[in-house]
Simulated assay, not measured.
Amino acid sequence: MLVYLFRFLSIFPLPLLHAVGAALGWLVYLCSPSHRRRMRENMALAGYTGHLSAAIAEAGKSIVELPFVWCASPARVSRLAHAENWELVQTELDAGRGIVFLTPHLGCFEIVAQEIALRTELMVMYRPPKQAALKPLVEGARARKNLLLAPANMSGVRMLAKFLKKGKPIGVLPDQVPQEGEGVWADFFGRSAYTMTLPAKLAQMGDATIIVTYAERLPGGKGFVVRFVPFDGSLAGSTAEQARAINAAMERLIARNPEQYYWSYNRYKVPAGIAAPVAAGGRA
C-alpha cells in the first residue's frame, strides 16, 4: 500500500510537496510533545534555537519529499539536483583512491547517494527499516544503477572494505547511533554521543580519502545542491579521538544549514548493553 501511495505522491511537483511538508512539520511539532521536546533540547544544546521555526518546516519537507526522491524517475529527480565541487571527488577517482563519503542527517541526505551513483559506482551501508511494510519501498528506492547496498552487519563491513580497497567509493551515515560494541562515547555539540568508529577504521584500512557531503534543500521547491567538502580533521590518536574528529567535522557541516539538520533524532540515547557516559564529577 505504501509503495502505491509513494508512487502516486511522486507525480506531484516538488514545490507542492515541500509546501505540504512544511505544514506537516508544524502539525507534528504541535501534536507530539516528545518530538517537540527533543527538537528544542537538541537545538538549544547546539546553540541554534534561533532557527527553530525554519527547522520545524524543514523537518516536514524531509518527509514529504521522499516520494519524489525515491519514486520519481531518476532523470526527473536529477534535473532538480546540482553537484557543487565535484572536482574534489573526480580527482580522487582519477587517482584510483578509495573514498569514504560521510553524509549526516542534513538536508535531503537520501538524494546524495543517487547523485553520486549517476557519476560512479557507489556502495552504501544499509540498515533495513524496523517496519516490514517499509522494506520493499526503501530497498527498491535505493537499489539504483551503480548504487550497491551493504547490510549493517559484519558481512556488510567486509563488503565495504573490499570495495574500498579496489579504489571505489563507499557511503556511511556518521551520525547514526551505532549498536553495542560498534562505537565510543565522543563529544557532539557539547554532550557525549555514542559515535561510530567504523568510518575511521574503513578509511585507514583502505588508505582512503574522507569527503563529507550533504544536499542543501533550496527554498520554494527549486531543488537541491549536493555539496562536497574536504574532511579537515585528523584520524590520528585513539578511536575516541577519531570519533570526536568526525563529530567535529559534522558540526562544521551542520553550521552551514542548521535549520536543515534532523534535530528530532535521539542522537544522545544510550544503546542497550552500553554503560552511560560518565560526566564531569564522576556522575553518569
Rank of each mutant, 00 (worst) to 15 (best):
P169G: 04
Q242G: 10
D207A: 10
E251C: 01
L160H: 00
A203V: 05
F231D: 11
I170H: 02
R191I: 12
G183H: 07
P174T: 04
I210H: 03
E180G: 08
F163H: 14
P199G: 12
Y265W: 14
G171F: 01
S238K: 09
F231E: 02
V226A: 14
K165R: 13
V225Q: 13
L202S: 03
K269Q: 15
G220F: 07
L218I: 11
P219M: 14
Q242H: 06
M250E: 01
G233M: 07
A240H: 01
G206C: 01
R227A: 07
P199F: 04
G171S: 12
I210D: 02
P258W: 03
M205W: 02
L202V: 03
R227T: 11
Y262F: 15
M196T: 05
G273L: 01
A200I: 03
M205I: 03
D232T: 14
P169L: 05
T197W: 02
S264E: 13
Y194L: 11
P219C: 14
F228Q: 05
K222P: 04
L198H: 02
A255F: 06
S192M: 08
V212K: 06
T195P: 05
P199T: 09
Q260R: 05
S264D: 10
T239D: 14
Y268F: 15
L164K: 01
S234V: 00
L173K: 04
Y268M: 14
T197F: 00
A193K: 08
Y194M: 12
F163W: 14
A249K: 00
M250T: 12
K168P: 00
V270G: 05
G171Y: 04
I254P: 04
Y268D: 14
Q242S: 11
T239H: 08
S192L: 11
L202C: 01
G206I: 03
P174H: 02
P178G: 11
P199L: 10
V212G: 04
L160D: 04
V225E: 11
A186I: 12
K201Q: 13
T213S: 15
Y262C: 15
D207H: 08
Y194K: 12
L218H: 10
G237F: 07
G181S: 09
D175S: 10
G273K: 02
A255Y: 06
P174G: 07
I170K: 04
E180A: 14
M250A: 10
K269E: 15
G233T: 10
V226R: 09
K269H: 13
G273T: 05
G273H: 00
G167H: 01
G167F: 01
Q179K: 13
S192Q: 12
M196L: 11
R267P: 13
P271Q: 14
E251Q: 02
T195F: 03
G220R: 10
Q260F: 03
G237P: 05
L253A: 06
A240E: 11
A208P: 01
A193C: 12
N247S: 10
A193D: 07
G221E: 06
V229C: 12
A255S: 14
W263L: 12
V226F: 08
P230M: 06
N257E: 14
L173M: 10
L160F: 03
M196N: 00
Q176G: 09
Q204S: 00
A186E: 11
A203C: 02
D187S: 15
W185Q: 06
Y214A: 15
V226C: 15
W185N: 09
T195R: 01
A215R: 02
G221Q: 06
F228E: 04
T213R: 03
A255V: 08
A240M: 07
R244C: 11
T197K: 10
